[in-house]
Amino acid sequence: MGNYVARAEVDVRAPRRAVWTVLTSSGANPEILMGAEVVSEWKLGSRIVWRGEWQGRAFEDHGRVIELDDRDEPWRIVLTHFSPLSGQPDVPENYHTLHFELEETPAGTHVTLDQDNNPTVEAAQHSQQTWETMLRGVKAVAERAASKRSSA
């Protein structure tokens, strides 16, 4: 079994803090992760749960916040992630690690998300597509929020 990494990236026309707020907010946004509800205290070591429905099946993915760098200007968060829909046992070796990095750019924020522990190239490509969709949702929500703030 391999350890292939899925990478998804997006450029967001919003300040890094606005993108961080979208990524680390509990609740549901229809645009993000198939409308899943996110529940977490967003503190180091805290549990995170994603609840929703995908292709007519309820899901409840979970993990923990294992790294959080939000001093001054937030830029990095690392989470573990397990999905029971994978059909795998809920044991540490079946968890993924999600690395989010936010880089300030002249136009806003560049977000990179890496997910490790994909057993095949195909699995990594599937994960990449899922995370690209999720990041497009983050982009939409963050840009809408930034637009409202700038017009207020």
Score class of each variant (00 low, 15 high):
85 L>K: 03
86 S>C: 05
85 L>N: 12
144 R>H: 04
144 R>D: 00
17 R>M: 11
79 L>M: 12
42 W>I: 07
126 H>D: 11
152 A>C: 11
119 P>L: 15
147 S>Y: 06
1 M>L: 09
15 P>G: 12
64 R>V: 04
139 K>F: 06
129 Q>F: 06
56 G>C: 10
59 F>D: 06
62 H>N: 10
71 R>H: 06
32 I>K: 08
63 G>E: 14
98 L>Y: 00
69 D>R: 02
107 A>K: 08
114 D>K: 14
3 N>S: 10
12 V>K: 00
95 Y>M: 10
57 R>V: 12
30 P>A: 10
100 F>K: 02
119 P>S: 15
147 S>V: 04
132 E>F: 09
11 D>E: 14
38 V>H: 06
94 N>V: 05
143 E>S: 09
46 S>E: 07
71 R>W: 01
120 T>Q: 10
76 R>H: 00
118 N>F: 11
50 W>V: 03
30 P>L: 12
91 V>M: 04
60 E>W: 03
58 A>G: 15
45 G>A: 12
110 H>W: 07
135 L>I: 07
67 E>C: 02
77 I>K: 00
136 R>E: 13
56 G>W: 03
112 T>R: 07
73 E>T: 07
23 L>K: 07
100 F>V: 10
143 E>Y: 01
105 T>H: 01
72 D>C: 01
114 D>C: 14
75 W>N: 06
79 L>D: 02
18 A>T: 10
32 I>N: 09
3 N>V: 06
89 P>K: 08
126 H>F: 15
114 D>A: 14
89 P>T: 11
37 E>W: 06
75 W>V: 00
79 L>T: 08
6 A>H: 03
52 G>Q: 13
88 Q>L: 15
69 D>C: 01
110 H>C: 08
26 S>T: 12
128 Q>I: 01
51 R>D: 13
94 N>E: 11
55 Q>S: 15
85 L>A: 06
1 M>S: 11
68 L>C: 01
63 G>Q: 13
46 S>Y: 10
134 M>C: 15
60 E>H: 02
22 V>M: 11
9 E>R: 03
25 S>L: 06
100 F>D: 01
66 I>N: 03
106 P>C: 07
128 Q>R: 15
58 A>N: 13
78 V>P: 01
76 R>K: 12
28 A>R: 05
92 P>G: 15
